[in-house]
Design a protein around this nucleic acid. Structure first.
Lengths: 127, 127
DNA sequence: TTGACATATTCCTATATGGGAATCTATTGT
DNA sequence: ACAATAGATTCCCATATAGGAATATGTCAA
């Protein structure tokens, strides 16, 4: 199997830096394709293609206005990504704590002067 | 140019559903490759390959323990994704408000009985 | 209708992917 | 030293990408 399609979900669509830039640009309000082209300094066909991907996964909304089209970020579609990453929030807080503890332990050790290699054991959940 | 490498950043690495599953599984603590294989019901070479990608972008940490290797999610590396998505938080809150307002307007309209198509204008930031 | 403008699509190509199967490497126990 | 075990790597392949260039579609204005 090859890599999943960029249009298969928001995670894949958002993996492309230029698409992220477009989403940020369109977050504050509707913009014309031409405006995106000008603001982000991309080729027009490139922008159209990226918008197509974003639209397919529901990350942008589009509406016609005369001869131009107005795109706008659909922020709600980003929410699942936010929630997935939020799951790890408690863990990186733990990690910061551990880093802090280690730093303090190290400082204490260098004060009292006992080096000693600390034998490590596997994680608790192991067979 | 082709699609960016999966190892080019966390966004690309995380686009793969199985890699996300691995990250979740390894978030709570170190696990053996074999444990991942058993828990997520994937082929062993597949797990090794995914771990390699995750390791290259710093999403997991590894340490050898006898003949096995222990992998653990490096939650801190997920933080940039969290922050990127957090940028849109205020916008989806706005959207929820608008949806609510529309629903109320609609309810009010159906009560008083005037239908009328509402002519819409382009966004404020337009040329 | 015709022309001008705004977007979209198509064609091309180099590149990378993820799965499956087979094999290699490293480490342990005897 | 050797067998056994845990992981990693390699080879093969179908698939999809993103960019560039050229072209097509669609909509307004005169």
């Amino acid at each position: 199997m090859a890599r999943a399609s960029t249009t298969s979900d928001a995670f894949n669509a958002v993996a492309e830096p230029r698409r992220r830039a477009i989403l940020v640009y369109l977050a504050a309000g509707e913009q014309t394709v031409g405006a995106i082209v000008a603001a982000l300094e991309m080729e027009q066909p490139s922008v159209s293609k990226h918008l197509r991907v974003l639209h397919k996964v529901g990350l942008v909304r589009m509406r016609r206005c005369g001869r131009q089209k107005l795109y706008e970020t659909n922020a709600a579609a980003i929410r699942p990504l936010h929630e997935w990453t939020a799951y790890f929030e408690r863990y990186w807080q733990h990690q910061l704590l551990r880093v802090k503890e280690r730093a303090e332990a190290k400082a204490a050790a260098s004060r009292s002067g006992s080096p000693g290699s600390h034998k490590i054991t596997p994680g608790e959940r192991n067979p």
